[in-house]
Design a protein around this nucleic acid. Sequence first.
RNA 1: GCCGCCUUAGCUCAGUCGGCCAGAGCGGCUCACUCGUAAUGAGCAGGUCAAGGGUUCGAUUCCCUUAGGCGGCUCCA
Length: 676
Amino acid sequence: MSQPRPSAAEPTPRVVVPAGTTAGTAIREAGLPGKGADAVVVVRDAEGRLRDLSWTPDADAEVEPVAANTDDGRAVIRHSTAHVLAQAVQQQFPEAKLGIGPPVRDGFYYDFDVDRPFTPEDLQALEKRMKQIVKSAQRFSRRVFDSAEAAKQELAGEPFKLELVDVKGDSGVDTDEVMEVGGGELTIYDNLDPRSGERVWGDLCRGPHVPTTKHIPAFKLTRVAAAYWRGSEQNPQLQRIYGTAWESQEAQDAYLERLAEAERRDHRRLGVELDLFSFPDEIGSGLAVFHPKGGIIRRELENYSRRRHEEAGYEFVNTPHITKSGLFYTSGHLPYYAETMFPPLQFEGEDYYLKAMNCPMHHLIFRSRGRSYRELPLRLFEFGTVYRYEKSGVVHGLTRVRGLTMDDSHIYCTPEQAPAELRSLLRFVLDLLADYGLSDFYLELSTRGDTGKFIGEEHEWEEATETLRQAALDSGLELVPDPGGAAYYGPKISVQARDAIGRSWQMSTIQVDFNHPKRFELSYTAPDGSRQQPVVLHRALFGSIERFFGVLTEHYAGAFPAWLAPVQVVGIPIADEHVAHLEQVAKALRARGVRVEVDTSDDRMQKKIRNHTTQKVPFMLLAGAKDVEAGAVSFRFRDGGQINGVPVDRAVEVINGWIERRENSSPTAEGVRVEH
RNA sequence: GCCGCCUUAGCUCAGUCGGCCAGAGCGGCUCACUCGUAAUGAGCAGGUCAAGGGUUCGAUUCCCUUAGGCGGCUCCA
């Protein structure tokens, strides 16, 4: 989860730190704040390196003050808070060995090797100790080790830190995550008692830190989890404590409120509340069933996509859910992905696998007869259901499932057609996502890494990568590199969409593939009569429909646009005698294809409004004696707004128009214009 | 897959330090009420306390196994 955009960097005045004085003194003399949310916590030197306020340059140095309420400032606060946590842990559990403790997005963590896992009660006790430490205003004091040997001697009791000292030479360790070592020298930060100057605690660390623990305005421990040492399954698991820290209590409260909002939007919760889908234990983990209301949303999503694909020149195909193993050997998915495919069924002397990817089947359709260049680009599309054996610990709501339906298509084109095809493809994908209400995008370019998983020739990869990069740049969107993130058969662009509360989700992927055409011996006859190999472009727009469904549910917080809403209109009579009038209105709406119900239950009218509001029905139409007499209805919207006495014909027209235009915003009294 | 936590009525959750008929709200059903913009009232039904095994005179409660869920780690074509 991310916060809704880092605040724009304010123009920061530079400050000159005279030789021999501390940065802190210079900052104070420049009149910059030392307290509050915009307090300067560290400075950035001419090389861009963050320095402690106690840093004392040998020569006059121009520095940029870094305030608490900036991304860098928060990271420093969080990193310092991680130290406070570690100190508290070692006070409470003297046998605890230290792992690493970096800041992360919105917070920090620290890993510990302890005899038993932490309990929620431990967290409370630790938080209390941390508050005492913060209050005691210990100074963070930087000390440089004379040599690696000196460091190892002092850290003899900390096996994990020793390991970090040893691997310090490896450039790979000097990352944002491992903040213990780096920057050319080995340093330790001592925590000093402000009165006695006595060393209370210390930790191998490259820094920088806030001047004292008092400069941690707000923090909270959030959860415990296990994590592998240095991120490898081969290594022992340590106990990780996560926490968050902010430049002010208000900022922290706002963050916690964002978490609460995310929880309210959780599609798993809304799925139950709105009766959209469920995961029956009897079927198995990660296998969803869609209930009638979820089914309507899904059908609308799919139908609109079908229509757009048809308009864009796609042809629709269907393929089976199971296949002999040979096909996946030809494609190369086996043995690469054997671990994430369901184990095979054996019969008639063959291994049959549940389909984990649609592409091989589509290739067989292409190959089913001779192809001419005149047919290209040939665009095959399918809502293809695939099954993947996701490990038990990763299955998560609709976003990570074991059975999913991809809106998968494969485009077969000549190498010359590929660049233009990619450009229009990207445009198509972005336009379509926008039609569903997602409009804030950036792109990620996933390229080949140096592991052995990638097949094919270097020059082909380079060519394909360049083609993709060009298409991505042409889109004008921000492009983030993702080295090593490619599929084994080719590079990809993925479209990342930010939702209504600023979280980003990977949506569509577009891949260039020159390996499958080779492996499947795909060919077409060129104008000169020669046989040529096509390029295959793989793309999924939703990724998986299940996942897209989940993302949209959270994006709209369950209040789906009217065109997607399972129930678009509910008629609410003031009393039983007004039912007939509403039935007439419903009939007129139904004739236009609107999904409408009249609530004839025994509930009072107020209760009905409440029920349908919590069910997030976009249009409620009330009718009492006044409306019946006037041949009218009264609108009530999800936000509580209302428009009374609208003539029935006009009401039908307004609702139908709103749905047909596929308005993605929630209808309101202001947004719906009933006058002609 | 690994670590930790969790599983009590359709949903959300009390409760049982091992012992009498396991509770509430919402939801469902029945009846009364016919009401102008977010909860009318009364009554009724609903649980082998996730499943299996063990310890015990006695297990929903303690232990083990399995399944499912949650939070992370690893993974995600």
